[in-house]
């Protein structure tokens, strides 16, 4: 009796948290004014938001009496791929020069995305 009530409350809380973080992520995407700043909002809040929604789904399945952990796969997949997507979008920003020029690295000559052959040179194959 009380156990199902606790599971229901936990489901509702994690659903609300996930919804709020998803909302804030997209709100940040719309509000922020610099391409690099915009990258911060969705890749973070979006990941935790969807992660929390999936946690709510796991808890709801537990409350229905048919426990399943399939959602863990989606969460793991999102947590592994989110940094890679963010890194690629950063590289696009750097490549298109649509952000501030970063400072020079400490020990090496340049950043790898900016390390392009001079124009006119044949493309390395």
């Amino acid at each position: 009796m009380t156990a199902t009530l606790i599971i229901d409350i936990a489901t509702a809380v994690s659903l609300v948290i996930g919804a709020v973080f998803t909302f804030v992520g997209s709100y940040g995407l719309l509000k922020l004014d610099d391409p690099m700043k915009r990258l911060h909002a969705p890749t973070k809040a979006g990941t935790l938001g969807v992660g929390s929604l999936l946690l709510g789904s796991i808890l709801a399945a537990l409350g229905r009496g048919e426990p399943s952990l399939q959602e863990v796969l989606i969460v793991a997949f999102l947590f592994v791929t989110a940094p890679i997507s963010a890194h690629f979008i950063c590289k696009v920003n750097l490549h298109r020069r649509s952000c501030d020029t970063p400072p020079a690295p400490v020990n090496d000559t340049t950043w790898s995305t900016l390390d392009t052959p001079p124009t006119g040179a044949p493309k390395p194959s």
Binding site: L15, P35, T47, L53, S57, I89, V92
Partner: peptide, 25 residues
């Protein structure tokens, strides 16, 4: 610019996953 559009599409995918999960719930 292009990066913003890619980022927006990425975010829309994340939100679509959320909507599908909510539909299942």
């Amino acid at each position: 610019n292009t990066a913003d559009r890619i980022l927006a599409l990425d975010t829309m995918t994340l939100n679509a996953i959320g909507l599908i999960v909510l539909l299942g719930l």
